[in-house]
Design a binder for these strands. Sequence first.
DNA 1: CCATATTGCTATGAAAATCATAGTAACAAG
DNA 2: CTTGTTACTATGATTTTCATAGCAATATGG
Lengths: 168, 168
Amino acid sequence: MTKIKDNTTDQTLCPVARAEAVVGDRWTVLVLRELFARSHRFEEIQAQTGGTPQMITARLKKLEADGLVTRRVYNKHPLRHEYHLTEKGTAFFPVLMALRAWGEAWCKSPRDGRAMNYTHITCGKPAGLGPVCESCGEPVRRDDMVGERTPKYQKERDARWEAFKASR
Amino acid sequence: MTKIKDNTTDQTLCPVARAEAVVGDRWTVLVLRELFARSHRFEEIQAQTGGTPQMITARLKKLEADGLVTRRVYNKHPLRHEYHLTEKGTAFFPVLMALRAWGEAWCKSPRDGRAMNYTHITCGKPAGLGPVCESCGEPVRRDDMVGERTPKYQKERDARWEAFKASR
DNA sequence: CCATATTGCTATGAAAATCATAGTAACAAG
DNA sequence: CTTGTTACTATGATTTTCATAGCAATATGG
């Protein structure tokens, strides 16, 4: 079992350093992204993040220990779990949204296009990138939006799943 | 020189994965925090993040290569640089704020107290944690706020600097 | 009832990154 | 001419990560 460093970073008052002790790791964030995308099973998460089983096991264990994730039994004999976000995990949403906005704005070639489009439920229009709805100006929360993958991104995910299945 | 993995993560449309290929690392985020805190010299950054020289060198190099940071010569003979955020680096601010808010809310014991207090310049009152000013309701940006360290956090930083100086 | 498939992991070893510690180069100050 | 300062680089032990393989428990198909 692989362990993950969380250092003595919790010996600082700085909330950024403390948060990073929990989520300061690429795999961890990718796993969280999948949980927000409603992938709850181990293999889905593994396939869509591209991590090795150990990476995923270790992150899920740490996320559970840190209180962001719970295991939920969906099948005994054989014992099988689904992974779900807790309140603490769900509260991470704004960080993911900010990261997404920054990634959209600064980390891609313009011809790539969007991966997701969000609709602000309360106003029914596109939510845009910022923390505030582009269409109506209200602050947006997780439960106030519906996300929809663009066909291109959906295709990419389907392909990844197929590739994953084929390789085993 | 240590290299940092950025994988083939830029072979996805997902902006989160793409962003993580750049900033998905604890040291990188801590370095960015210091740059936002206006620590521009190598040793300040090293002291306040607690990283080894290699860690810091490698992150600064990668951040420069990724376009978030520029070196600025402040002294020739011997050649000395200061590190500054570019526009792309500055644009990372909302992520850091979201992370800070989550860290404040979920990663500390209540008795610890705040590290920073921000004031919303345009309304003159405390900005609070969210992406929207707690006092006046307007969305807050980096240049719309002044941050002030709490005495306790300032003390912690001073102590870290002293300890660093003493150990060399 | 037997073979194959499915799910959710664990095991192994090579390659890479990290950490602690020490050292260096170029000057400046006393 | 000795000591201090700044910004690193070098070294080697320890840890992590990655790729690949394997396995246990059951479901499914014939």
